[in-house]
């Protein structure tokens, strides 16, 4: 069997990490064991920041990255991170076989990796804080907020907060001690990373929409048999659906899991969402500046879905 080592950053119990494991088994089954998939999660082999280059270079055969990790390396991958832009789950169900996905796959191949699977991770994020849930833009005034990326911080600043950068591993401690007052994370992570131990007010809003995608070293992919390639195609399509299901389930279960811990959970209404969007979106767009031809074409393709 051909060894295929895949690195990703998610902790093993994360709902998408489980989809990755299921995908690995499916690839092995469909290829009749031609491919031996070995998953190295939780940054245990290659760090999250190094996955892309390590795979393209051929140090490892395969890796999974969150879309925003492409950053300036391939900015078009970040089109979905605009606040409130891609909350609609139907887009994600159609996504793997869409023209938009094919367009991105071409871009990835030009850059030097072969995309094999799209895993929608979340459209259900939470604002966390102490006291009362953050609902109206005024509630954010003066808070020290955990920062995410420069354009997103611009949106947070527009709400009157002070974004403060820190690595994910330090957020819990920072929230516990008050170095930051509030954070934004997906519902599943708010549960798994125990934010409810140090925060007591949560607002569920579809503000961020992130996906994990799996890609191979192109030379390694070319060296595979047709049967193996076929197996990767099929497993990729199946896993995309599993990811949507798992994300929907995690998003649906998250608020109740939080409530069980005795914290306040508020689900934002459409009006409240519209008010937040009207403040955050213009600031984000100005800082992000996604006005090149490729980004526009991708946005058009997504509109067609």
């Amino acid at each position: 069997a051909t060894e295929m080592r895949c690195s990703h950053q998610l902790p093993p119990a994360h709902h998408i990490a489980k989809v990755v494991d299921r995908w690995a088994e499916e690839v092995e089954t469909l290829s009749d064991g031609e491919i031996d998939v070995q998953i190295f999660g939780a940054d245990s082999l290659v760090g999250a920041r190094e996955n892309i280059v390590a795979t393209a270079k051929g140090d490892i055969e395969c890796a999974f990255s969150l879309n925003f990790q492409w950053g300036k390396t391939l900015p078009i991958m970040n089109v979905t991170v605009a606040p409130f832009a891609f909350g609609d789950i139907e887009i994600w169900e159609k996504w793997p076989e869409s023209e938009a996905a094919a367009f991105l796959e071409d871009k990835l191949e030009e850059k030097g990796v072969k995309n094999v699977v799209w895993m929608f991770q979340t459209n259900s994020t939470v604002f966390t804080t102490n006291g009362e849930p953050l609902v109206a833009p005024e509630d954010f005034e003066g808070l020290k907020f955990r920062g995410l990326t420069p354009p997103f911080d611009a949106a947070l600043r527009a709400l009157g907060t002070t974004p403060t950068a820190m690595p994910g591993s330090e957020v819990y401690q920072a929230l516990a001690t008050g170095i930051v007052d509030a954070a934004l994370t997906d519902v599943a992570a708010a549960v798994s990373r125990k934010y409810f131990e140090v925060q007591d007010a949560f607002t569920v809003v579809p503000v961020l929409s992130a996906y994990l995608h799996g890609y191979l070293n192109p030379e390694f992919y070319e060296g595979l048999s047709d049967k193996s390639k076929q197996a990767l195609d099929e497993a990729g399509l199946k896993a995309a659906q599993w990811a949507v299901e798992a994300s929907v389930a995690a998003s649906a279960a998250g608020p109740d899991q939080l409530r069980e811990k005795g914290v306040k959970v508020h689900i934002a209404t459409d009006e409240e969402i519209a008010r937040l969007e009207s403040v955050m979106r213009p600031a984000f767009d100005e800082a992000f500046g996604a006005n090149d031809a490729d980004s526009q074409k991708l946005l058009d393709l997504i509109d067609k879905m």
Partner: peptide, 9 residues
């Protein structure tokens, strides 16, 4: 705690 999902506190 993060790997095992145990409570940090």
């Amino acid at each position: 705690a993060i790997v095992s999902e145990a409570s940090i506190g």
